[in-house]
Nucleic acid binder design. Structure first.
Lengths: 250, 250
DNA sequence: GCCGTTCAGAGGTCCGACCACTAGGATACA
DNA sequence: TGTATCCTAGTGGTCGGACCTCTGAACGGC
């Protein structure tokens, strides 16, 4: 998509991109200090920083003040929190977020059932066990919950869908953290996760998809309930700035 | 996700975000000239530019040299071409891209069948007609093809899923453009689009999903064939790094 | 009325200085 | 000896102010 030559920023982006493609740079690697790198590329430090900023915004680079600049590591995600920004711009609604997640994760679960490997099953099993063990500790529980879904995404064998899921999940995360779930809910949640795990392990794609959908539907209604007794009013395009803010923060 | 206060870049991002949330800024609007805006925010122009660059990278702002900086207009998309960058980093494969698209668009078609409105149906019908009319002109055809899918995304009533689709599609676009389709293929393609349109209009979600899936599966195998048949793909910049580039550029 | 020229205003690039954070070594103390 | 504190080199962050390039529209000659 991006033109090369002219714009300095694109020159930087393409240069780093090439370094990645040739294997010269790998996830976790550090790039040279800005001053040095800028000299090597024959551009000003300011321009170099523009390019790096661009890559950082897209989640490809990870800049750490006082330490250095690194190639992003960990699960790929499209543009850190870009979804919430876009949401502010286009008025995304909470339920749309959940719907998107429900659809993605359901398919992910089905794919995981078809393509998952022993190692994935083992990880899933482990996380389920941890979930049961931390039913009394929502904070801890959430960590394993997230990991569980992340393992499924990996097991699906499609890193792109996994990245999309990661994007939505992280946008949903903040809101979710605020929902102080009760222990009884967590027990039910753990049960559902166990069901999902079993369906995947037995390579029953349809079942995995169905249970995952049930799980996420329940999670959504639980949160809706928590947030307000009133069901979400879909004004579609309403003026009320109040509602707008709500949709935005999701 | 982003901390506020300290980092200038986040101060800018949050400020603009707030302006968007309050409705002070709307898609298509122009923000003040950099020098002036920087003065108003009490920060240096460089810092302001960093923040704007961040927003631009995520597709929220649209910067035009010599003209001005605008709030993004048109269909939302997550981080312009961030997918192809991430692809380079994590080695995304072509088939994974197609799979993701197939899953997303199938669900989108189903949702469109359930929620679409008369105006959407009218647009779809129009695009189908245009497709038949431009069967002899691949360039023109492609435009209406893209529009057709975009209208379905809108009709689905879920802008988030639509944005995800847009992201994948635009990453796929370059590759797709190179595939000089023959007229006969286009005729078949138009027929399928017409089927999809009919299913949606008759609110048959299952049928819409199925036909869409068939359409995209065919499109994928057609392109695979094209790529395999012509063994001397344009290397775009000389380097023989074929296999690698393939996985990357998709 | 058409078309090339001019020009103001907007973003793009650069420089060089200085600030702020981090990690790890050097030092002081118990 | 062990531990806590301080110091410092290295790296990203911010600044401002000069200059370049691009775009669009007003201007003026034909």
């Amino acid at each position: 998509m991006p033109k090369s030559d002219t714009h300095m920023t694109m020159r930087v982006v393409n240069h780093i991109r090439t370094m990645i493609e040739t294997g010269e740079l790998q996830p976790g690697d550090r790039i040279p200090p800005e001053r040095e790198f800028a000299r090597k590329l024959r551009i000003s430090r300011a321009s170099l920083r523009t390019g790096i900023g661009y890559l950082a915004a897209m989640g490809v680079m990870d800049v750490r003040h006082g330490v250095g600049t690194f190639v992003a590591d960990g699960p790929p995600e499209l543009g850190k929190s870009s979804l919430s920004l876009l949401g502010a711009l286009h008025g995304f609604q909470s339920w749309q977020m959940f719907e998107a997640r429900r659809i993605l994760e359901s398919e992910l679960a089905a794919l995981a059932a078809e393509r998952g490997r022993e190692q994935h099953f083992a990880s899933l099993s482990e996380e389920v066990a941890e979930m049961y063990a931390t039913v009394g500790n929502p904070m801890e529980y959430l960590i394993h919950d997230v990991r569980f879904h992340r393992v499924i995404a990996q097991a699906s064998g499609n890193p792109i869908l996994a990245a999309l899921m990661e994007t939505i999940t992280s946008a949903l995360y903040d809101e979710r953290r605020k929902t102080a779930e009760r222990s009884r809910d967590l027990k039910e949640s753990a049960d559902l996760h166990r069901e999902i795990y079993r369906a995947i392990r037995s390579r029953n794609a349809a079942e995995a998809r169905a249970v995952m959908e049930r799980h996420l539907t329940m999670a959504q209604s639980a949160q809706d309930l928590e947030l307000a007794g009133a069901p979400a009013p879909l004004s579609e395009n309403g003026k009320p700035r109040k509602a707008r803010r709500k949709a935005v923060d999701v």
